[in-house]
Write a protein that binds this DNA or RNA. Structure first.
Length: 550
RNA sequence: AGUUCCAUUGUGUAAUGGCAGCACAACUGAUUUUGGUUCAGUUAGUCUUGGUUCGAAUCCAGGUGGAACUACCA
């Protein structure tokens, strides 16, 4: 018996269906984004679920763009969505657009009209809302509800032909105005919209509503398991009703709880607002919870997939600790990232007993977690840059760095002892003077001195510079969505800080998109706007820091 | 208030009538030329009240708490 991973509730349903022989041709899922925004980490969860389930059970998964609302949908979004799915490592079996089915859907509507199950309503949107009733009162039938089939057919045809203005008429399903589920109170299924569609152009001025398009599209593609988020649970009776009345392939809808991440927002409306009002630099700003933002920040796709698998799926409200995502990112990067030294907040360190003008090359591991990564050589000389926070005038106990008389090892180099500091008029430290121990050279240390701390450094003579964007959480509160007032009031003003850092020489040629670990400081990724003469880095995530916590 | 859904350590998720487990987080300790990694360990949970049962996180009933629904958005 091998150890078996427990099943989530969807896997259980699928295995039961398969065991019952319901789907001899295998299961078929789909990922159905609306091309009206960029994909975010919540979508990644759905992508992993739909594509993952298809793969696990040797089924198929389609990509279908749910493009029934031309006023918000754009080609730019279609392209970004495809790019993101591919980057995550998934391949769709077929790609469709709901707009591919516009003619079929129109014929389905005609079929409903003929069966006396749909009617053209001349009421305004306000009138329809007013007669809808509420959660505690039934709605009232529209005065147009009893039009003849012939009249409905003719009016619907005229609607398609463009005879009416936006909002003048709608097609509604005829179900039950007293139904406790508000969605079944004669829902609107077609509305007039004289708008240019990104794919069908001006061929239509009539567009189906989600409820009249989604289930039928699933059915046309023979989707067996149509997985969506919890808020669609009330739509399921409608989904089933259309399929049943139309007598088409019975796809079934299943719902799971959307994933929420702490310290960010996940609604496309809010993300769009952040972009439009320039609180961030764009959909792919590294602070955004979008797939493209995470890619630009340096998150490896495997980390996102691992995260989605780790959090699993369920049906309850949730707020997942962003720390878990960061753990997954570190876990992936730790195994693969090139190591390098970079000083973010520099202070000059002078090794007083090291000869002026001398430079030697020292050997350093490219990745201690991966012996095959080899080593590289880094220059070392009398003047170095070290991190300002690695020195303290009066250090507390257990501060394993520099202070008056204290010793540390310079990573891959020598052990040094702090002898003196030079301060300016305001008392700020301008230079730290140390002596080094020649026989403590890394790899051939015969000094027999053991120090607690090791710090990173960069040779001042050969250092390059880089502009580094340090990112922090986008919001100051755990769950901006539930706070009072405008969610933007909770944005973290410190979410982006830019510094100029010193880097060891080889980093200057780092390619766009590569992510490396700056020793002791975290992971950094070369931004797409980086140029040969000007290195631009994004902080991907810091290292776990058990010292800073104290 | 009507309908629907949900409730397991701080967070997320398992246990499908039979030992409440896993991951993250937190905390100890060991190792470490990254206060990283790795390793060993600790803390901490079944919303509540009844019922069924030899036995309930699981089944039933009531309560409590939370969420969703009243767009010509998806």
């Amino acid at each position: 018996m091998t150890e078996e991973k427990s099943l989530n509730f969807l896997e259980e349903i699928i295995e039961a269906d398969l065991a019952a022989g319901k789907y001899p041709d295998g299961i078929h899922t789909r990922f159905p984004p609306e091309p009206n925004g960029y994909l975010h980490i919540g979508h990644a969860s759905s992508i992993c679920l739909n594509f993952g389930l298809a793969k696990k059970y040797q089924g198929k998964c389609n990509l279908r763009f749910d493009d029934t609302n031309p006023s918000t949908e754009e080609v730019e979004y279609v392209e970004s969505i495809q790019r993101d799915i591919e980057w995550l490592g998934f391949k769709w079996d077929a790609r469709y657009f709901t707009s591919d089915y516009f003619e079929t859907l129109y014929q389905y509507a005609v079929q409903l009209i003929k069966a006396g199950l749909a009617f053209v309503d001349d009421s305004t949107a306000e009138e329809i809302a007013a007669t809808k009733g509420g959660i505690n009162e039934p709605g009232r039938n529209s005065t147009f509800r009893e039009r003849s089939v012939a009249e409905n057919l003719q009016l619907f045809e005229e609607m398609r032909a463009g005879k009416y203005a936006d909002g003048e008429k709608v097609l509604r399903a005829k179900i039950d105005m007293a139904h406790p589920n508000l969605l079944l109170r004669d829902p609107v299924i077609y509305r007039i919209k004289h708008a240019h569609h990104h794919r069908t152009g001006d061929a239509w001025c009539l567009y189906p509503m989600y409820d009249f398009a989604h289930g039928q599209s699933d059915s046309l593609e023979q989707i067996t398991h149509s997985i969506c988020t919890l808020e669609f649970i009330h739509h399921r009776p409608l989904y089933d009703w259309f399929i049943q009345q139309l007598g088409i392939f019975p796809s079934h809808q299943y719902e799971f709880a959307r994933r929420n991440l702490s310290y960010t927002v996940m609604s496309k409306r809010k993300l769009l607002q952040l972009v439009n009002e320039q609180h961030v630099a764009g959909w792919d700003d590294p602070r955004m919870p979008t797939i493209s933002g995470m890619r630009r920040r340096g998150y490896p796709p495997q980390a996102i997939v691992q995260f989605c698998e780790t959090i699993g799926i369920g049906k309850r409200e949730n707020l997942i600790d962003i720390g878990l995502l960061e753990f997954c990112v570190r876990e992936q990067l730790n195994k693969t990232a090139q190591r390098a030294m970079m000083v973010l907040d520099p202070v000059k360190l002078i090794i007083t007993n090291y000869p002026e003008g001398k430079t030697e090359l020292l050997e350093a591991d490219n990745n201690p977690e991966d012996p095959t990564a080899g080593t590289r050589q880094i220059p070392f000389s009398r003047q170095l840059w070290i991190e300002r926070e690695d020195y303290m005038d009066s250090p507390p106990k257990k501060f394993f760095r520099l202070g008056p008389g204290l010793m540390v090892r310079l990573k891959s180099a020598y052990i040094i002892r702090c002898e003196d500091v030079v301060k300016d008029a305001s008392g700020a430290i301008v230079e730290i003077h140390c002596s080094y121990i020649p026989e403590s050279r890394s790899g051939s240390d015969t000094s027999d001195i053991h120090v607690k701390g090791t710090i990173h450094w960069v040779d001042a003579a050969t250092a390059g510079t880089a502009t580094v964007r340090l990112y922090d959480r986008l919001f100051q509160v755990e769950n901006p969505a539930v706070e009072e007032g405008d969610f933007k009031a909770y944005l973290n003003p410190q979410s982006l800080q830019t510094v100029t850092a010193f880097i060891e020489p080889f980093l200057a040629t780092a390619q766009i998109g590569t992510t490396f670990q700056a020793l002791r400081k975290g992971y950094f990724s070369v931004d797409k706007e980086s140029t040969a003469g000007h290195l631009l880095l994004n902080k991907t995530v810091g290292l776990k820091d058990t010292w800073a916590k104290k």
